[in-house]
Amino acid sequence: MALEAGLRAALRTLAATPHLLVALDFDGTLAPIVERAEDARALPASAAAVRVLAGLPSTTTALISGRALDSLRAVADSPSDTMLIGSHGAETWTGPDGAPLALTPHQAEVLARAVAVVEHVVAGHPGTRIEFKPAGVVLHTRTAADAVADAAVAAARAGLAALDGLRITDGKRVLEISVVEADKGQGLALLRQVSAATAVFFAGDDVTDEHAQRTLGAGDVGVRIGPGETAASFSVATPEAFTEVLEELAALRAAGAPR
């Protein structure tokens, strides 16, 4: 697939920036969506392009994911200096000196009650499952029938309504519940600050990635993978098509990165 002329031109301009931050979602962007989250792996060519970018001067790579950090590390196999944002911004790893996430006693109590609600929902809705995160809990409905999935989400929302201090977000066949007020836009802003980037490339496929897309400004480039309303300037159809975008950016940056 040939890249559209506008995207190619934007990548060429971006590649010449003094310090480039390449921040990427994982599931649905680097890796195709799969039924079992633990089976997800980045497409080999996309992973190779990220490694090239990570090895270039004045270039910082990062992953921004809804996954908990431990889960992201397990499936991503990213370069060791790639910064990580997990749990939609609630967890961050910007280097070995970073402080781990710590909940207040109130947050821990609310999280425990939210977990109990989701466990009860999963027990009564075949094909759904629960995922535990340091600052939240997730209801997964990808392997449930559509009617069961809808009923499970409705039941979870009803059970969680009485709890204060929750952030509840719909994603692709998931309901994300967190006791930390954070999103991928805040995560990307942190990465921009820590890396001292002069321009940012961001790509994602889900509604939760739009928080990050909306933070992009003049000189940045955003790409949406798959259909859906987006604030990104450009879209491609699939993770496989996005591989070509990453390879083009890596080639352009390698040819013209500041030394």
Rank of each mutant, 00 (worst) to 15 (best):
A90T: 10
H140K: 03
V137C: 03
V223E: 11
E240Q: 15
L216E: 09
P18M: 10
A102G: 00
A144W: 07
T29V: 03
F202E: 12
T17E: 04
A2P: 11
P44M: 07
T215L: 02
E210Y: 14
G127T: 12
H88K: 05
A102Q: 10
D70A: 12
A31F: 05
D205R: 10
T60H: 02
G6W: 13
P100H: 09
T143D: 04
I225V: 15
D39F: 04
P79Q: 01
A112H: 08
F26G: 01
S78N: 06
A47I: 04
L30A: 01
L249R: 08
Q213G: 06
A257Y: 12
A257C: 05
A40K: 09
R129Y: 08
A156Y: 06
V207H: 12
T198I: 10
A254F: 08
L249S: 05
A47R: 03
L24F: 07
D97R: 15
V50N: 02
R167I: 15
T198E: 11
A218G: 12
R8M: 03
R51V: 10
A9K: 11
T61C: 02
L139I: 10
A40H: 08
P227I: 13
R41Y: 01
G159S: 04
A254W: 12
L84E: 10
P126W: 00
T59F: 06
L14T: 14
L30D: 00
A254S: 15
A49S: 01
L216T: 15
G127N: 06
E244N: 11
A90F: 06
A158I: 07
A62F: 13
S65G: 10
D27I: 00
D81N: 06
A99N: 09
D97Y: 11
R51F: 09
T230L: 09
S71F: 00
V207M: 12
A257F: 03
E240R: 15
A49K: 00
R253F: 08
V148S: 03
A90H: 09
A189H: 01
E181S: 09
V194I: 02
S58V: 09
R129P: 02
G28L: 09
P32G: 04
E247H: 08
H19E: 13
L56E: 04
D206R: 14
G256R: 15
A203K: 12
L160S: 07
R67K: 09
L111V: 10
K184C: 08
D205I: 15
R214F: 12
P57V: 11
A197L: 14
Q107Y: 06
A257H: 13
L21I: 08
L20N: 03
A237I: 01
A23Q: 06
H88T: 15
G86M: 03
L246N: 00
E210N: 11
L53Y: 07
F242L: 04
P227R: 05
R129H: 14
L191R: 06
H140F: 00
A40Y: 13
G185H: 14
A90S: 11
V207G: 07
R51L: 03
R51C: 10
A241V: 06
E35H: 05
L252A: 05
F132H: 15
K184V: 14
G124Q: 11
D146F: 13
V138E: 00
V179L: 03
G55W: 07
A231H: 15
A189N: 04
D209Q: 09
V110N: 01
A49W: 08
I130F: 01
A135M: 07
I64R: 00
